[in-house]
Design a protein around this nucleic acid. Structure first.
Lengths: 230, 230
DNA sequence: ATTATTTAATCAAACGTTTAATTAACCAGG
DNA sequence: CCTGGTTAATTAAACGTTTGATTAAATAAT
């Protein structure tokens, strides 16, 4: 009814929000542009007016998601902290991001599964950036003796997998596996567990600390758990 | 041209094979039934003749994939071996499965991302079975002192994630991350690294064995690496 | 009055599906 | 061994629907 004109946000933002949710839920091919319009409460033609095409809308969302993740990662793993602290911070931030942007994450994961055309460029750029940062960090940790001489080419992928899986299987996990809501507390538990498992392993041969199973007890002094992810 | 009648396999099998590949590559919604027919070299009506509908074809493929994985897992983690050996065997078998059935795995992963309708039942059943087996195994390992008291509810998910990620990111990994082909040798390296990391962790605080980084050195005597997965 | 925004109506193309007809294999009875 | 009828396998053509996209007109803002 009202015709704001003030800025290009009102309808455009609602379209982007509706599209993000539907693309995440159903994927690109099974999301009709009319469904997006209905959910956003606008006419279908507005989508072409603002985004040019269905693919333009999709790319716009994708671009935003990837750049957000990239920025998050770069600012997270940098800094003068120790290797372990930097890796722990990566896990914390990544897990927190998963909580606050589940739809963007799912869209990215779908794209990675496909691996094709649309954004092999952007998904690749996103994944390669993360990978390289983590690999260099781990390699440096091994060099200084802070880490064991593990397979530093594969270890970053493993670490990403340990975090990603909790968003990847989220529908199943929250429905049938663990009797918990996916709230901030649970995400903190995921991060603590992941860090503990990655650094200390599951084997008892070394005789490590024996903290109770699900307690979120990790030291890391000034750590703001599940903190700002924007 | 030939009209075999002998059994219903010839065309039906070609349809299933073509559909499996296309569904894995593009997903359900972006795969046209005509494309499947063209790739299989049959008429589009044959798909309805054999499978009733597009969804019937998809469900048929999905069912087969899930039951295969389920059978693989059940027979793998059972047996009188120790906890560590059983978990290691799970990783070996799962990684080998990934190598030999990448398309089925990708279809299952897509379904898990969606989490909806189609087979929330079957995907859930598949995942819950895996999860329960692993959880019980890990819990038992903790009880006997073979494992540290880690978060045994989350640990199975982490372990699955450490394996799944290598199929999940496969296009990106083989294209830009690790300069290796996805052959049996690489899958063995993945399995060795995963087992090493899961049991021993990346930290050096405990003073564990110091085998060189990418060497596939794990003892596990009669282990047939990347063995029969059918 | 002019521009920017939104709408309803409409388009050709592509979709999954159905139908009717055709072809090859099988199996009687002669 | 033929032969005619039955059945299963396969095809080409068309169906109705939905899709992404476009347009011309209407409405609001400047």
């Amino acid at each position: 009814m009202a015709r704001p004109k003030i800025d290009d946000s009102e309808a455009r933002a609602r379209i982007a929000a509706a599209a993000e949710e539907l693309f995440a839920d159903r994927g690109y091919g099974e999301t009709a542009i009319r469904d997006i319009a209905r959910k956003a409460g606008v006419n279908a033609a507005m989508i072409h007016y603002y985004f040019g095409s269905k693919e333009g809308l999709y790319k716009s969302i994708l671009e935003g998601a990837a750049s957000k993740v990239r920025a998050l990662l770069v600012q997270t793993v940098s800094g003068p902290a120790s290797t372990k602290e930097r890796l722990a911070q990566f896990v914390d931030s990544y897990a927190a991001y998963i909580l606050s942007h589940p739809n963007l994450a799912r869209i990215l994961y779908r794209e990675m599964l496909t691996g094709g055309e649309h954004l092999m460029r952007i998904a690749q750029q996103y994944a390669v950036t993360n990978y390289t940062i983590l690999k260099d960090t781990i390699f440096e940790g091994i060099r200084t003796g802070e880490l064991r001489p593990i397979d530093y080419e594969l270890a970053p992928i493993s670490l990403m997998g340990m975090v990603v899986i909790f968003q990847f299987l989220r529908p199943i996990i929250s429905a049938a596996l663990v009797t918990t809501k996916y709230d901030e507390r649970f995400v903190n538990r995921i991060a603590s567990h992941t860090i503990d498992l990655f650094f200390n392993g599951a084997g008892s041969s070394g005789g490590r600390s024996k903290e109770p199973a699900t307690s979120p007890g990790r030291k890391k002094p000034g750590a703001k758990r599940g903190a700002k992810v924007r």
